[in-house]
Amino acid sequence: MSALITINEIYYLIGVILMLLVGMTLRDKGNPKRMTTALFWFLFGTVFLFSDLLVSALGKSMAYRIIGVEVVLISLIAGFGLLSIGSYKQRSHDERQASANQIGNWIFLPAVLIPVVTVLCTVLLKGVSVGGVYLLDQKQLTLAALCVGCISAILAGWKLTGGTPLHAVRESRRLLDAIGWAAVLPQMLAMLGGVFVAAQTGKSVQEVVSLFVNPDSRFMLVVIYCVGMALFTMIMGNAFAAFPVLTAGIALPFLITVHHADPAPLVTIGMLAGYCGTLMTPMGANYNIVPAALLELKDKYLVIKTQIPTALTLLAANILLMYFLIFR
Rank of each mutant, 00 (worst) to 15 (best):
T25K: 14
V22I: 01
P32H: 11
M19S: 14
S51C: 13
A57T: 08
G45V: 00
T46G: 03
L20K: 01
F40E: 08
L39Q: 02
L20V: 15
T36M: 11
T36F: 02
L26W: 03
L26F: 08
G45K: 03
A57R: 13
L49T: 07
L26K: 15
K29P: 00
L53F: 09
A57V: 02
L49W: 09
R34I: 00
M19R: 07
S51R: 15
P32V: 13
M24L: 14
G30W: 13
L21W: 01
D28F: 08
W41L: 13
V16Q: 07
S56Y: 05
T25C: 12
A38E: 09
K33H: 11
F50A: 15
K29M: 05
M24H: 07
F44E: 07
K33T: 09
F44H: 09
V22F: 04
V55K: 04
L13N: 03
T46W: 13
L58T: 07
M24K: 05
L43K: 13
F50L: 15
L49P: 07
L18E: 01
L58N: 01
L54E: 08
R27C: 10
M24F: 13
V16M: 04
T46M: 11
A38I: 02
T36I: 07
L43G: 14
K29R: 15
D52S: 15
A38W: 03
